[in-house]
Amino acid sequence: MEVADINKPLTFRNRIHPWLFALWISFASIIMMFGALMSAYIVKSAAGNWLEFGLPSQFYISTGLILSSSVCIHLAYKSFVGKRESSFKAFLFAALALGISFIVFQYLGYQNMFAAGVDLKANVSGSFVYLITGLHVLHVMGGITAITVALINAFLLPFITTEKRKIRLKLVCHYWHFVDILWIYLFCFLLFYK
C-alpha cells in the first residue's frame, strides 16, 4: 500500500519531521513503562524479603557492545549523508552485528545468574532483573529488525540520498540511540540502587 505524502512538512511550522517527532513521543511511553517497573522495584525492595546479588560480568561487556553499536550507527548515518556508500554499508553492518552480540551477551548473563542460584522464581529481586532486562531486550530486537531492513535496503536499492531515505535512516538511528541510553540507565539503576 502506498503511503500518501500527506505529512510533507508544512514549511512554516515544522523544523523537525512529524515522523521523527512521533518517534520521540513514543519514547515517552517507553520511559513510562520502564519507570513503572523501576518504581515497583524501589517500593518492593523497601518492603523486605529482598535478595541482594551482583549483576553478572557479561552485562558489563554487553554495555560496551551496545555503546559501540550506537557509535557505528551514528557513523553510518554520517556516511550516508556524506554520500560515502561503502563506509555507510560497513558501519550499518557493524551496528547490526554489535546489536546482535549485545543480545547474546545478555543471554550469557542470564545463564550466569541462573548458575549462581538466582533463577526467575527464587526471589522477587531476581524476577525484577529478568523482567526489566528482558523487556529491554525486546526493544533491542525491534531496533535490530529496523536495522536489518535498513541494511537490506542499503544493498538492494541504488545509493541515492533522498530526503525520504534520510529521514527513515534517522528514525532508525534515533531509536537505536534511545535503547542504548535506556540500557545504560537501567544498568546503572540495577547496579547502584540499593
Binding site: 513521543i25 515517552a28 511511553s29 513510562m32 513503562m33 520502564f34 513503572a36 515497583a40
Partner: peptide, 9 residues
C-alpha cells in the same frame, strides 16, 4: 500515552 504503558508493565 503516559499512563497506559504503566498498566502494560
Amino acid at each position: 500515552l503516559l499512563s497506559f504503558p504503566v498498566l502494560a508493565s
